[in-house]
Amino acid sequence: MDKGARAWTETVRADSGWFDLRLRELWAYRDLVLLFVRRDFVSLYKQTILGPLWLVLQPVLTTLAFTVVFGNFAGLSTDGLPHMAFYLCGLVAWRYFADCLTRTADTFVSSAGLFGKVYFPRLAVPVSRVVSGLFTLGIQFALFLAVCAWFMASGAPIRPRPEALLAPLLVLLMAVQGLGLGIIVSSMTTKYRDLRFLISFGVQLLMYLTPVIYPVSLVPAQYRELAMLNPVAPVIEALRYGFLGQGAFSPAHLGLSAAVSLALLLLGLVLFNRVEKTFMDTV
């Protein structure tokens, strides 16, 4: 065996193209992504009293608050659906998107210590956060299904449709949107730290622009088209249509949303890769 005859394993150049995204390298580090997921999960709940019970309590309490404030006091329409089921559906889905966005948005700042010491594909961090969000989503979605079943058993007008089977695709779409936007923001926060504050209340604002606590049918007809251009809106409406039987299921809007999401992700990847190379020089 002649070890000496091996070719160069790697060449690092000053300038690689804008689209040299090195996704294959990320794949080689897939074990790391899974271990990060596990670390996130353990560290999130190990020091809390109620542990993963928080995952259930959070949406339940928020849904109750929404039911009282928006459903009863404000009397917002829920398309004739039981308030609890309506809000829970929107909230669980929205939370996954918002989680993906906010938890990937601070990638560089929160991992500066790690990034400064050792090289691994930096994308492993945001990708692992999107994946670990799936646990939360899974548990909360099970809760939502249980609530639906309970309402159906008590005769509420909930009619699941075959479109519910699209749920995994819809979740993937939200993951792509959250990740795409998140890494765009994280790439920019290396230069402008104050974007972090913008993101926390920006997400809050965005929720009110998205049909989470109201159905899109409540939006005045002339603005409805505009509301559906928000890439998250058709996803949430489609989930409601699939699982509860009421909502705006629009393949055209979903297709547009998917196109926008992929564009966001691509833009995010390009920016992220640019920043990744020199990030340690700016902090």
Partner: peptide
């Protein structure tokens, strides 16, 4: 950990 501004290296 950081990229060179110019040149390259091989390993």
């Amino acid at each position: 950990i950081t990229r060179p501004t110019s040149g390259l290296f091989r390993v």
